[in-house]
């Protein structure tokens, strides 16, 4: 079976010479939920921006649903990889939530009447249908985050990539977002520093540090290994312990 995401030997150096990735291998099967963990500067964001062709691999290759990321098919790749960015204010730029949700599918050639249907389905999936005509400026943090998620869901992506989905959310909004994500039934790659969130949402975790994958296994096992976590500048919040 084709994997949702298949990254092989991916290496990348920024134009200023700073090498961020030194051969990353990562395979995510359809329907998996995987957490991508690692300290600041480990190369997480650089890896994410390779998945939808913003960065082009220096060496190695990236395949999404069996389609290799190349210059020619970058548009289809961007439809297949739905990135939800860390700050919803960066993602929500249209005057109303509904316009914003329609932006992606419209770019990918979806037209009316299907477009309205997509917008409605996406807003329903994250539970913010009543916010369709509101301006993103006047939403709460949790609503904004879910609206940003809807903008990506409307593109019907093969894999959902979430960059720090729980930052700036109060505990209730954080839990509500988890409920929404668990109910989506989609392949997911979640970049996060919120280790309990990774444990709650993702059965499998991949740890990257210094531009390479240093661990790949069940989230619970990884988070229970205090020495391993310490070696890669990761730690559970105060009061948490796993056996």
């Amino acid at each position: 079976m084709t994997a949702s995401l298949d990254v092989e030997g991916l290496a990348f150096a920024y134009p200023d010479g700073h090498q961020a990735l030194f051969g990353v291998d990562l395979r995510i099967e359809r329907g998996e939920r995987v957490a991508l963990l690692g300290p600041n500067g480990a190369g997480k964001t650089t890896l994410v921006l390779h998945l939808n062709g913003v960065h082009r691999a220096g060496a190695g290759r990236v395949e999404v649903g069996g389609l290799e990321v190349t210059r020619e098919n970058v548009q289809e790749i961007r439809r297949r990889v739905g990135i939800v960015f860390q700050d919803p204010d960066d993602q929500l730029f249209m005057p109303t939530v509904a316009d914003d949700v329609a932006f992606g599918p419209a770019n990918f050639g979806v037209t009316e009447p299907e477009l309205s249907l997509r917008v409605k389905e996406a807003l329903d999936a994250v539970g913010v249908a009543e916010l369709a005509d509101r301006s993103p400026m006047h939403l709460s943090g949790g609503q904004r985050r879910r609206a940003a998620l809807a903008t990506v869901l409307a593109c019907d992506p093969e894999i959902l990539v979430l960059d720090e989905p729980s930052t700036h959310l109060d505990p209730v909004a954080r839990r509500e977002l988890a409920d929404v994500l668990l109910g989506l039934d989609r392949t997911m790659l979640m970049v996060t520093h919120d280790l309990p969130y990774a444990l709650q949402l993702c059965p499998r975790s991949v740890v990257i540090d210094g531009g390479v994958v240093v661990a790949d296994g069940p989230t619970r096992d990884l988070l229970a290994d205090a020495d391993f976590l310490a070696a890669h500048r990761l730690e559970l919040p105060f009061g948490f312990a796993l056996d």
Binding site: V54, I83, F93, G104
Partner: peptide
């Protein structure tokens, strides 16, 4: 910097330089 991030987020949703024509 926000402008750059917004542009990146737009690119990721298939923006190619022209806004989709909403009816």
């Amino acid at each position: 910097e926000r402008g750059e991030r917004v542009h990146l987020a737009m690119l990721s949703r298939g923006y190619t330089g022209a806004m989709p024509a909403f009816t």
